[in-house]
Design a protein around this nucleic acid. Sequence first.
DNA 1: AAATTATATCGTAATGATTCCGATTTGTAA
DNA 2: TTACAAATCGGAATCATTACGATATAATTT
Lengths: 135, 135
Amino acid sequence: MNVENALDILKDEGYKFTSKRRDIIQLFVEEDRYLTAKDLLLNMEPHYKGISFDTIYRNLHLFHELGILESTELNGEKHFRLKCNHEHHHHFICRNCGITKEIEHCPMEKINNELKHYMVEDHKFEIYGVCPTCQ
Amino acid sequence: MNVENALDILKDEGYKFTSKRRDIIQLFVEEDRYLTAKDLLLNMEPHYKGISFDTIYRNLHLFHELGILESTELNGEKHFRLKCNHEHHHHFICRNCGITKEIEHCPMEKINNELKHYMVEDHKFEIYGVCPTCQ
DNA sequence: AAATTATATCGTAATGATTCCGATTTGTAA
DNA sequence: TTACAAATCGGAATCATTACGATATAATTT
């Protein structure tokens, strides 16, 4: 997923191009890690004085719906990162900077027979800690 | 973990016995599933008119610290349940009622070599869906 | 290029979960 | 039973998030 991909998705779905949207996506591409709404606001404010929370949250949710971003919840705050659009995997997540490392193993493969009669809708496997850079 | 166990832990650590604390623990023992602060409040209000949020939250966190409860975060709300104090495992969690089913397999066993140089502090493996009763 | 229209944004208020705090009450130990 | 620390109350404060009317702007049409 790069900036052009994401903007094409927006265009194809009939959403308008704005420089704020471009910059939000660009930030995610550059940072390549989990960011919060507040992170975004702090990054955008210098270039767009008075930018509204509404704009940030509305676009985060839009991008999430359109499959441009994926999200997780850490310490009561939603975090977003660019969607990994290759094969299914999980993440180690650095609690300090939000950077991720892919974990190829998916535990769901091992347990399908344990949940007969249960309707399985989703699963989450995340490893938390500190990345080498932040140590 | 039963009511006596939990009250003993409180006593041993020098905390006072109150009927509210007994009833909170009793509720968790009876329900044996994930509950929110609001669930607790609704359950307690009929017997303790005017019970304060402060009391609920303070005790939930105390019980969590003391290892009486474990917690997870679902839809931006903290959920608590009695701590399972036998061997390490994970849970299927019903999104409707909060009931859990144990999953014996722990994915961490498979991946210790993938995270050289990463400081691993914690992990979460949860499966979400609807339990047979709620379907 | 100007007019039109639907979408995006702003500014700010509302909401919901959680935390904080001074005043009061209540277990527990002496 | 008294004394004191801990627990609770009542309500305000905080933090993340959502909502909304008014205004601005991108894209489309004339």
